[in-house]
Design a protein around this nucleic acid. Structure first.
Length: 863
DNA sequence: GCAAGGTC
């Protein structure tokens, strides 16, 4: 048997298809896809299936001095057990193996890892094939002339693994231990993340150090035949045009002159035609940037792209390439879109061009094509809204790259008024070109009426505007990724993850990202003692060393030994400063959680976490001062810059994905709750008859509101209410529950919430439908059809016969339904509740609200 | 529980 190994499952499937002429069959071994035809078997890895780490005895951070890691052994162990097991099994049956991983350094290393696993099972010959795109021609010719594994190139990759692990782990442990930050909130550093963080911190330093300067600008409205346009004052500053006036007296003088002017004479009119070329094909960075201007974070854009890739609608989203490969036929691809409702007209019009010559970017690599749509076009309702928007972006970008250039007419008018010069510019789109199919980049026109030299214009509405120079702007996520690419750090597949990691580690917050005090302290400590790790030079040096290894000019051992010596010297420096660094880091950690003065002691209030994991506000003077305030139970608290004027406490925002909200000043929220009387609206359905409990609208000190029983905590019946808006209790009563209908007033549109019990039941029903969409391959449309067929929540699928249901729902196969059923969580045998409506709203099923109430009465845990 | 690099 001949065994072929690829880097990922998708590549395995396509190579099997090509080499077998479509006859390959798919089976599963240990849950891993295996493709077979004739005497050949093909299996895909999932990138690296083994990882590097230190031996077991180094795993307890407190038992090991970080410096010991420098010379510790490094061992490789499987990280993808099932794939490794499958590979071993297949190797035992193989007479010959071929490594067909990606054609790049990391691919060579992944191939060598597979080789070593195979060698542990068999002495069969192992070959290597290289091809830069998975096309029939390239793949077949690569397999006709197999080569050998390039062990030097793989060793270059191993050097990177070793150096990254040793530096990253030793310094991360050093900082974490010195600040006594173990467990979840360790303090990390690394070759890629730390220079990226320094970029953000440096920009923040520039912003902090910025000293704004005053200047003035003047504007006047000019009119010809009643058509008005705005012009700006400018003057000659050493031969170049300047609009900003730096001296107030000069500005006042110009203002006076313009106000006295009754007319302006046009002294020059210049018309120019400009070509606006269509954009280059998408690589990862350009894609993230374009998706960013549609409001997607880098992480979100990439995860949607990966989803679209695995479902087969777009090509591989991790690529540096901006030049379409030769085997891409743009006309053929356009043809696939002509029959679609959304893109048909645009595709037709592009096909009418005489000659289609796609644009090209500067970067050409051969591992993967630029991101473009495959010929498979999804129906709109197969994708959710975000997926569709991103898919459309990729389709339209492809369209743009095969569309014509746009042309603009730029018009510039200069006029003189009472010795002052005024100018106005306008632009008009002459040929929309690619903008017709790619409506994302700005194509906005600015209007100027047709004026001629010598025309006399009316001057009206002269304005003097006082302004200040602005500090540099913070980097946005896509700008950061661009900057990382320019600096040569990270890869197309990791840059967006690095940004996400900085958020997770508490180094940056908000968007655009702003560094925390902790981030500043970490960068300061690194700058002082381990400058290399916050510098892009470390990567540059590593790249040079890796090239040397790949060329045979150096060995893995040379390079890693030298790197270890450098790190030894760093630790020499660090040795005496351990405590200072730790204190500084701890101070910064506290600063990020500090809200302001405690009303009962001379200390500050801090955001703290109870032993159970819930957040609250507590005094830094604990245990002497036991003052506390509750926080909402949803999300992670973030201390905002804005502070409450009354209490001097910073506002708190609760980060909870889609449900993120600003809580505000926790003292104000608690006071409001204390000052608000409970409003009784009816009898409690749980204990009203028996104990005369009433339902009341309650405001909690944590800021949330609910309808709850007045006998709490003896009765914990409750219903949720929105956090915001005034609640009006109307005279209308619900027939079913004998409760008043409620109306929430916030913003312009009042929201008729209705009976709180009915409302909660409807809410739960909606949640159930939303849960349906969490199943793979269920979009909004399918969820709706499922609901009509009686499946209103995922658990309902357990009770259906897939074959029967498939006949009831259009476009859904019984095997798809079986797949959904296989995604359902394990059934808890005790959970056979019937659908008693009142049962669904009682205590245990409503953790969030009950947590809020408990937070009020619970004695807060000490540190 | 550390990094960065693959991929899902």
């Amino acid at each position: 048997m001949e065994l072929i190994i690829t880097e990922k499952n998708n590549a395995a499937r396509r190579i099997a298809e090509i080499l077998s002429g479509g006859s390959a069959t798919t089976t599963q071994r240990n849950g891993v896809n295996v493709y077979e035809w004739g005497l050949t078997t093909c299996v895909g890895l999932s990138g690296h299936v083994v990882g590097v780490d230190f031996p077991e005895e180094y795993s307890d951070w407190r038992d090991v001095e970080p410096v010991e890691l420098i010379d510790a052994d490094i061992v490789k162990s499987p990280t993808q057990e099932n794939i490794v097991r499958t590979l071993r099994q297949l190797a035992r049956e193989a007479d010959e193996a071929t490594i067909a991983t990606d054609y790049d350094r990391e691919g060579e290393l992944i191939g060598k890892e597979a080789y070593e696993l195979i060698r542990e099972e068999t002495d069969a010959p192992v070959k290597r094939v290289r091809f830069s795109s998975i096309t029939e021609r390239e793949v077949k010719s690569a397999f006709d002339e197999p080569d050998d594994i390039d062990f030097d190139l793989a060793a270059a990759g191993e050097a990177r693994q070793v150096i990254d692990l040793v530096w990253g782990a030793a310094l991360t442990r050093f900082l974490s231990l010195s600040a006594r930050q173990l467990g979840q909130d360790f303090i990390s550093v690394g070759r890629v993340q730390s220079p990226t963080l320094k970029l953000i911190v440096d920009r923040e330093r520039e912003i902090q150090a910025f000293d704004p300067e005053d200047y003035w600008e003047l504007f006047a409205d000019l009119a010809k035949d009643g058509e008005t346009f705005e012009a700006q004052y400018f003057y000659d500053d050493d031969g170049s045009e300047a609009e900003r006036v730096w001296d107030e007296a000069d500005a006042d003088e110009a203002h006076e002159r313009l106000r006295e002017a009754t007319s302006a004479e046009v002294t020059s009119v210049r018309r120019r035609t400009r070509t606006d070329n269509p954009p280059a094909p998408f690589n990862t960075t350009a894609f993230i940037s374009a998706a960013g201007s549609l409001g997607y974070s880098a992480q979100r854009a990439m995860s949607i792209a990966e989803e679209l890739y695995t479902t087969g609608y777009i090509t591989y989203p991790r690529t540096d390439n901006t030049v379409y490969p030769e085997d891409l036929d743009p006309e053929e691809l356009l043809d696939e879109f002509t029959m679609t409702h959304e893109f048909g007209d645009d595709a037709e019009s592009l096909l009418e061009r005489d000659e289609i010559e796609p644009t090209e970017g500067d970067d050409e690599t051969t591992d993967h094509p630029p991101i473009h749509p495959t010929g498979a076009v999804p129906d709109r309702d197969e994708l959710d809204e975000d997926e569709w928007e991103v898919y459309e972006l990729v389709v339209r970008r492809f369209f743009a790259t095969v569309a014509e250039a746009a042309t603009w007419e730029h018009l510039r008018v200069v006029a003189a008024a009472n010795g002052c010069q005024l100018k106005a510019t306008g632009k008009r789109l002459l040929e929309a070109g690619y903008h017709d199919v790619y409506p994302y980049s700005s194509a906005s026109e600015s209007f100027l009426p047709p004026v001629e030299e010598g025309d006399a214009l009316d001057v009206t509405d002269v304005e003097l505007e006082a302004k200040q120079t602005q500090p540099p702007r913070r980097y946005g996520q896509s700008r950061l990724i661009q900057q990382m690419e320019d600096m040569g750090i990270g890869t197309k597949a990791t840059r967006h993850n690095v940004i996400e990691k900085l958020y997770d580690r508490g180094y940056i917050e908000s968007d655009p990202p702003r560094p925390t005090s902790l981030a500043e302290a970490v960068v300061e400590a690194a700058e002082e003692f381990a400058d290399l790790v916050v510098s892009e030079d470390m990567t540059a040096q590593l790249e040079a060393d890796m090239s040397a290894i790949a060329n045979g000019e150096a060995t893995l051992d040379d390079v890693t030994a030298e790197s270890r010596e450098m790190l030894d010297r760093v630790f020499e420096e660090l040795r005496d400063s351990r405590e200072d660094i730790g204190d500084h880091l701890q101070e910064s950690l506290k600063a990020d959680r500090r809200l302001g003065p405690c009303p009962e002691s001379d200390h500050d209030l801090l955001v703290r976490q109870s032993r159970q994991g819930s957040y609250f506000v507590g005094c830094d003077g604990f245990p002497e001062c036991r003052y506390t305030l509750p926080l909402p139970s949803t999300g992670e608290p973030l201390v905002l810059e804005e502070a409450c004027e009354e209490h001097g406490l910073n506002h708190v925002k609760m980060l909870a994905g889609r449900d993120t909200f600003v809580h505000g000043c926790p003292q104000c929220k608690a006071d409001e709750a204390d000052d608000t009387e409970d409003e009784v609206i009816g009898l409690c359905p749980d204990c009203g008859d028996e104990h005369e409990g009433n339902l009341a609208i309650k405001k909690l000190r944590s800021g949330s509101r609910l309808v709850g029983c007045t006998r709490y905590p003896d009765c914990d019946y409750s219903l949720p209410l929105p956090r915001r808006g005034d609640i009006e209790i109307t005279d209308e009563y619900c027939d079913d529950h004998d409760l008043p209908e409620l109306v929430v007033h916030s913003g312009d549109d009042p929201w008729e919430l209705g009976c709180p019990i009915c409302n909660y039941q409807e809410y739960q029903a909606r949640q159930a439908v939303d849960d349906l969409e969490d199943l793979d391959g269920v979009g909004p449309a399918t969820a709706e059809r499922l609901e009509t067929a009686g499946v209103s929540e995922p658990a309902d699928l357990r009770d259906v016969d897939p074959d029967v249901l498939a006949t009831e729902i259009q476009g859904v196969s019984s095997s798809q339904i079986r797949d959904w059923i296989s995604q359902l969580p394990e059934v808890d045998p005790g959970d056979d509740d019937d659908d008693d409506p009142d049962d669904t709203v009682s205590g245990s099923e409503d953790g969030e609200i009950m947590d809020d109430i408990r937070a009020e009465v619970e004695e807060v845990e000490s540190d």
